[in-house]
């Protein structure tokens, strides 16, 4: 089954072409990486998929349905979750609330029931809380439940961001530089985490990353962007030895 189908996606900032004729087909359960120099338009692709930007042209179809023109929250509640390059938690809210907020679209009670704390309110709130606690346990964050997200150490903030994203019950997960600021050992653990949540939550994953260890280690397919255009695509070993990629991205002193 095709999870995500992007065709001839183009986006401009002013005169600058940030993404040009971007095509991508993601089958359910796939794990695909996007790499490319800084400013190549990788994060722009994520922003287009999640509806932060409106594409200039092209189509994005998720499970066969067109996404272009939909609001971000509608796209999210259809099952596309993401994390951010520079962690964007709700810093002054508790860890629990961070995860509970992501349950918004699944919570079934009306504004009136909320104002009066009546009807489905109690049962739904209990369900949301339990589901949030379960996620926190899964990510070993339960002892920080009531702490402000701001006070978590960096590694835990990254983990909380992933837990929060999973709370919207996504089918497709977009990870934007999950390994930023991690050392090689931590990256190894992150790789285990990613593989594990993919199996556990039946996810299709699209990720942007600069650390070759992670990208080459877990991605089944890699797409290389430069100046908004795709310059290479294929299995990790194919991409690694592509002369264009070596020149534009990896350089000669690439991290092994």
């Amino acid at each position: 089954m095709t999870m995500l189908q992007i065709e001839r996606l183009t986006h401009r900032f002013g005169g600058l072409c940030a993404v040009q004729d971007f095509n991508l087909n993601l089958a359910a359960g796939e794990l695909v990486g996007i790499i490319g120099p800084n400013g190549a338009g990788k994060t722009t692709v994520f922003n287009l998929i999640t509806g932060i930007y409106r594409p200039a042209s092209g189509s994005i179809r998720f499970k066969g349905k067109e996404l272009a023109g939909k609001t971000s929250n509608a796209i999210a509640s259809k099952g596309i979750a993401r994390t951010f390059q520079n962690i964007r938690l709700f810093k002054d809210l508790s860890v629990l609330d961070n995860v509970r907020i992501a349950h918004y679209a699944q919570t079934r009670y009306s504004a009136l029931e909320a104002l009066l704390h009546a009807g489905r309110y109690r049962a739904e709130e209990r369900r949301v809380r339990e589901s949030a606690m379960l996620l926190l346990k899964t990510f070993r964050l339960e002892k920080h439940t009531h702490e402000y997200a701001r006070n978590l150490p960096y590694g835990l903030q990254r983990r909380l961001e992933m837990a929060r994203a999973l709370a919207i019950r996504p089918a497709l997960m977009l990870l934007d530089e999950p390994a930023a600021g991690m050392n090689p050992r931590e990256i190894k653990e992150l790789m285990d985490y990613i593989m594990w949540i993919r199996g556990q939550f039946e996810l299709t994953i699209l990720l942007i990353e600069h650390r070759m260890r992670l990208v080459m280690g877990i991605c089944e397919r890699i797409k290389v962007l430069d100046f908004g255009a795709t310059i290479a695509e294929g299995r990790p070993d194919e991409v690694r030895n592509n002369p264009l990629v070596l020149e534009a991205y990896l350089g000669n002193e690439a991290e092994r």
């Binding site: 971000s72 929250n73 709700f90 002054d92 918004y104 994203a165």
Partner: peptide
């Protein structure tokens, strides 16, 4: 969550 970060809030399915 809107006060904290509106874009992130939208991404987390909050209308």
């Amino acid at each position: 969550s809107i006060r904290e970060d509106e874009i992130a809030s939208d991404m987390m399915s909050v209308n």
